[in-house]
Amino acid sequence: MGPDFKRLSVFRTVVNSGGVNAAARVLHKSPSAVTYDLQQLERQLGASLFRKSGRRLVLTPRGRALAASIERAYLDLQQAWEGLGDANGREPLRIACVSGFGRYRLVPRLMRMMPPERPVEVLFRTASEVQALLESGRVALGVSYRPLVTAGIVSTPLAEEELVLVGPKTRRAAPRPEDIPKLPFVTYEEFDYVFFRWFEANGLPLPQPWHRVDHFDELEEALESVASGRGWSIVPLDSALGRAYGSRLRVHRPRRHACINDIHLVGSEHELRGEDAALLMQAAKAG
């Protein structure tokens, strides 16, 4: 069964209006009808979207996730609508990036180079999701630590990043190499590629078993967990040295040789020969 767009719209109205009664006035429906729509949506999803807090309805974690997804979809639709209606508007630069390199190196430099009248749309995704967005045509170019090569998509080297072991700033002493596999680790989406690459480059055995204390979808929450002293992680050096965490994290290198990871620019052959690809190449190499 596909999404129930009618009831998803009711759910969005309840969230944005602040409650069932206010949503009922906006939708010109009775409060009982709005409540019924919410109950049917929860039944279809098999999850509670709201909980009661006194006389108020409060979103559950799944409710918040659904509301955020709906708002992203509406924003995408609004941008597409505005772009089609503006004959003189320039096509946005649409790219999908793996989070570490994109957030902490590429995008800050790109923003300093972009003309103010050119819109930009950046989606931070996993490597597999970058590929899916390219294949669907949702974005024109992707940035990934994997050289994605499929039908109609090619790859070219873009930059390099260093992967490092990080711990809280309060932990001054570096762990001994033989103790690293036993550390409590904080992981994030697609951590396996980054962690395995780092352990291999440093000649260390993978933890058996893993001692994982926290796991997050996003790299930022993992960095926050490490900075708070909850565990250790392996992350791109750019993220560890960023303004948000540079004063709260300590970088540890068991060996003198850095663990270098290749970053690739991916897209169609036509897109990789275009001005946008050249701009991204220039931004990636900017100091």
Rank of each mutant, 00 (worst) to 15 (best):
177 P>F: 05
69 S>W: 03
22 A>N: 09
48 S>I: 00
13 T>K: 14
50 F>V: 11
19 G>I: 10
117 E>M: 01
200 E>W: 03
28 H>S: 13
242 G>V: 04
20 V>K: 05
242 G>F: 02
49 L>S: 10
234 I>F: 02
63 G>F: 09
65 A>L: 14
193 Y>D: 09
110 L>M: 14
186 V>S: 06
101 F>D: 12
261 N>Q: 15
175 P>F: 02
144 S>A: 12
8 L>M: 13
263 I>W: 06
92 P>M: 08
75 L>W: 02
1 M>F: 01
253 R>L: 00
91 E>P: 01
225 S>R: 11
229 G>W: 03
153 I>Y: 06
3 P>K: 10
159 A>R: 06
186 V>L: 09
95 I>N: 05
149 V>G: 01
5 F>G: 02
53 S>A: 09
233 S>V: 12
88 N>V: 10
127 A>P: 04
287 G>Q: 12
117 E>P: 00
278 A>K: 12
188 Y>W: 08
209 P>C: 07
259 C>E: 04
92 P>W: 10
124 F>P: 06
108 P>S: 15
192 D>S: 14
246 G>Y: 07
50 F>T: 09
207 P>K: 03
147 P>R: 11
276 D>G: 01
223 L>Q: 05
250 R>I: 00
218 E>F: 09
207 P>G: 03
272 L>P: 06
229 G>K: 04
276 D>N: 13
65 A>H: 07
197 R>G: 00
135 E>S: 13
192 D>G: 09
91 E>M: 09
240 A>W: 10
98 V>M: 03
163 L>M: 07
158 L>C: 14
